[in-house]
């Protein structure tokens, strides 16, 4: 028996291949599972790009429709999440280009202080308030930094993607991803300090 078959990398690859096979067949059960599995992560990523909940939700649905239609293009060589984020990113860029052709920062002026929305946690009232305040502070700090830095930070520290995968999703060289993370984190730290003071 081949011992390497139990290696986590191989397991991930076989998962990715199984997903690729299911997507080629447009398996609705698989798509339901994937939508459920990536619901929070994908919406958070879209929200970090658009800073607009309504638009992020529209793009969330459009992303899954695109996944259904173009599922045959996923070859299982990368993580599914990498491909999914790339699809979502391209859709967002297309949408924002149609709306305002200059850059991803197009929405900044229209929603200057809209923070990323926190979840409804449901513990005690003061904990809810504290968590909400905390989430709003982070959201406010995130929304204030340029889109390309924000995207790198969200993908790295919230979606936990490796640097190489971030480079694949964003189509940027690895060095650029690293410098975006560095600059973004510097800006983020400065803003967090100012907000918490």
């Amino acid at each position: 028996m081949n011992a390497s078959a139990y290696c986590p990398t191989n397991l991930m690859e076989s998962d990715a291949r199984a997903i690729a096979r299911g997507l080629r067949q447009r398996d609705p059960e698989l798509l339901d599972r994937l939508i459920e599995q990536y619901r929070h992560r994908l919406l958070r990523y879209l929200l970090s790009l658009t800073r607009n909940r309504e638009l992020a939700e529209d793009l969330f649905q459009e992303t899954w429709l695109r996944v259904l239609e173009r599922g045959h293009q996923y070859n299982g060589r990368h993580e599914f999440s990498t491909w999914l984020y790339a699809v979502a990113r391209n859709l967002t860029i297309d949408h924002l280009r149609k709306k305002r052709p200059d850059s991803l920062d197009g929405l900044r002026e229209s929603h200057p202080s809209l923070p990323l929305e926190p979840a409804d946690p449901r513990p005690m009232a003061w904990e809810v308030l504290q968590q909400r305040e905390h989430a709003e502070q982070i959201g406010a700090a995130l929304t204030g930094i340029p889109a390309e830095y924000r995207e790198a930070i969200v993908l790295r520290f919230q979606e936990e993607l490796p640097l190489e995968e971030i480079a694949t999703v964003t189509g940027a060289p690895l060095g650029t991803v690293k410098s975006r993370l560095y600059r973004g984190l510097n800006l983020m730290m400065g803003r967090l300090e100012r907000i918490q003071r």
């Binding site: 619901r39 958070r44 990323l116 979840a119 946690p121 905390h134 995130l142 967090l192």
Partner: peptide, 11 residues
């Protein structure tokens, strides 16, 4: 980074 990771979010 801890603050970013602890940010709750739900769809």
């Amino acid at each position: 980074i801890r603050a970013l990771r602890s940010q709750p979010f739900a769809a």
